[in-house]
Design a protein around this nucleic acid. Structure first.
Lengths: 211, 211
DNA sequence: GGGAATATTCCC
DNA sequence: GGGAATATTCCC
């Protein structure tokens, strides 16, 4: 009943999209207004709408006339077939929860139409401007914040890079060692197999002779 | 290749287990020592071990001799086949992350053995005493550490850092995979040796009889 | 709609 | 191992 391709697809998407999603959002620091890697959720939702444009999926979900919002025409089919191909679930309410988290608004009480200023047809590049509503751990003393930002200078940045390179180097060394271990294992396997096969041969001849 | 029954099973489990899991933990308030509905993760992990007892799954994952901990004998098979039947993913590292969250300890560097005082064979009733480690709203918030966000760094430098982080991530993934390959190889070796030894025995007896 | 707990991912 | 971001679930 439920689409079976979930895991494969999710993993596929995960490996592609999540790479875009540098979690901390440090990338593209100097751009206006706060352009970041879009959240996976937004990319997937956008892509899912583009998929609809080519196929008959507009029956289930599509942009509205003006492309200023999107409409889920058939929540049941959308949940059962569309959601699991993009997400790790098939619950319409979880999808809506995410929409709310990213600040989408429900446009009409008569149909499932959702709108966000920065989520429009043809504007994939604006997705990076959409942010999650933060549940602030709220009042962290302002003085600590400002001083910490002053302290976070380029020296820590360089340091950071140093550490990354160091770690990188070590990882590569490790990789080589592991690879060698595997080669050894494989070689041993071959030997064992050869040994087994040879032993079988000799035993068989012995037995044949004795008969 | 990947088990297809993920969603159905997950949803099934979700509908059963998550009902038990009164999220806020308000249920059973007056019991000693803090008996709650066990977290879904713990129930699933426990059940997955019980499943092993009846089938040949002990080859992949099982309790240790004393039932005081459990061992993932074959991480590759465990990830590919077992995990997706209980969880919404097939990543060994995500599973381990959860174990750490609930305070499990890795027992040995030689095998994937995990232990928690309250997680033992035959003691499903103790699972309710296991709690997540809380991440206190920590005194030093994230932005104290995040250096790059507001700073003017040259775009090439930033780009460089991006690439390094990307490579780093991939290397770590590779490392885990290689480690798992090695485990598999070792397991195969054991099997071959056992096979060889058994074969030798039977052949010797055959020969002895013929003489 | 949104708060909050748990789950999954990513990074250090 | 663990901090922190995002995702999913559950509840009000």
């Amino acid at each position: 009943m439920v689409d079976n391709s979930v895991l494969e697809l999710n993993l596929g998407l995960g490996n592609n999209n999540n790479n875009n999603n540098v979690v901390g959002g440090h990338a593209h620091a100097g751009q206006s207004p706060r352009q970041r890697c879009p959240a996976p959720f937004l990319l997937k939702t956008y892509d899912l709408l583009e998929e609809g444009e080519s196929e008959d999926m507009t029956r289930i979900v599509s942009w509205n006339e003006e492309g200023s919002a999107f409409v889920v025409w058939s929540p049941a089919e959308f949940s059962e077939h569309t959601l699991p191909r993009y997400f790790k679930h098939n619950n319409f309410s979880s999808f809506i929860r995410q929409l709310n988290t990213y600040g989408f608004k429900k446009m009409s009480s008569k149909r499932w139409e959702f709108k966000h200023e920065k989520f429009q047809r043809g504007c994939r590049h604006m997705l990076g401007e959409i942010t999650r509503k933060k549940c602030e751990p709220s009042v962290f003393p302002a003085y600590l914040k400002s001083s910490s930002e002053e302290n976070a200078t380029s020296s820590t940045e360089e340091n950071n890079q140093q550490l990354l390179m160091e770690e990188n180097k070590n990882l590569k060394k490790e990789r080589l060692e592991l690879q060698m271990q595997i080669d050894e294992c494989k070689a041993l396997e071959m030997k064992l197999l050869a040994c087994l096969s040879q032993f079988m041969d000799t035993q068989q001849t012995k037995i044949r002779r004795l008969c």
